[in-house]
Write a protein that binds this DNA or RNA. Structure first.
Lengths: 138, 138
DNA sequence: AAGCAAATGAGAAGAGTTCTCATTCTTATT
DNA sequence: AATAAGAATGAGAACTCTTCTCATTTGCTT
């Protein structure tokens, strides 16, 4: 069990936190809601409260271990921080999520912020569409 | 009272709808939550239910009269459709919202969607930062 | 003016998330 | 290794935003 990551983030190495971190790291699915994490842990026999999952994910976010996204549909989606910033393109049919990085867009955003007199802190870009798979099914 | 806009949208010209449309058109503030609209109407002596405001705004959205945004903070924000598509840059301190259009970014997005095999239906780009005013107040 | 379908308002209900607080766990200290 | 002090947890209540339900009202057609 690797508690060093938590310690480094200034968080006590409690069992729920370790379980959640471990789960996030090992899951093949990258983008998960708090509910997803909660259910998955329950199913693998762990005892966690939903409130704890929310709390811990929020702490992970503050610690920079995790990024929170606001995809359409209301609920927050979390993703392990794996270095490079990226944006998302998602399928409105099947919910599939792809990632991309585009330096030109990044540059443009900085430029716009500067022009408008803003000191940019963050940005979010989501492209919505129908993925290749779903286009075939019509 | 101008009911033609509603008729054109295929909506019956009811009083609540007219009031809401009128309010949206005359408000200097461009981006408003359902709650904002509701409160404003109450204050100006109109009798509307919150449920109706939500319903009507959703209908206006479907009719293309209004655009719905999902800024951070959970609630939906509505804006009168005034022709050209644009993106938003918002101040995380005071909540101010500015708009911008960037053809380069638009192009890039289309290109990315195509590369990833998606047929793009929509996109949303929000830049967050601290606006000029708020930077001074530090 | 009358009738019918559509729209409304009030409150209940639902989804997602946060809060409360008694109990349990971590960790620093013996 | 035992202990004490404080932090974290779990369960459910509570909260926010939004949608639904349904009895009543309104708009539109005849």
């Amino acid at each position: 069990m690797d508690s060093s990551e938590l310690k480094r983030a200034g968080l006590k190495a409690t069992l729920p936190r370790l379980k959640i971190l471990e789960f996030l790291e090992n899951s093949k699915v990258r983008h998960m809601s708090a509910e997803d994490v909660y259910k998955a842990l329950l199913e693998s026999g762990e005892e966690v409260g939903l409130a704890t999952v929310y709390r811990v994910l929020t702490q992970f976010e503050a610690a920079g271990l995790v990024v929170r996204h606001h995809f359409e549909g209301g609920q927050s989606v979390f993703e392990m921080e794996h270095g490079e910033h990226h944006d998302h393109i998602l399928c409105v049919r099947c919910g599939k999520v792809d990632e991309f990085v585009d330096e030109t867009i990044e540059e443009r955003q900085k430029k716009i912020a500067k022009e408008k007199g803003y000191s940019m802190t963050d940005h979010s870009l989501y492209i919505y569409g129908v993925c290749g798979e779903c286009q075939k099914e019509e």
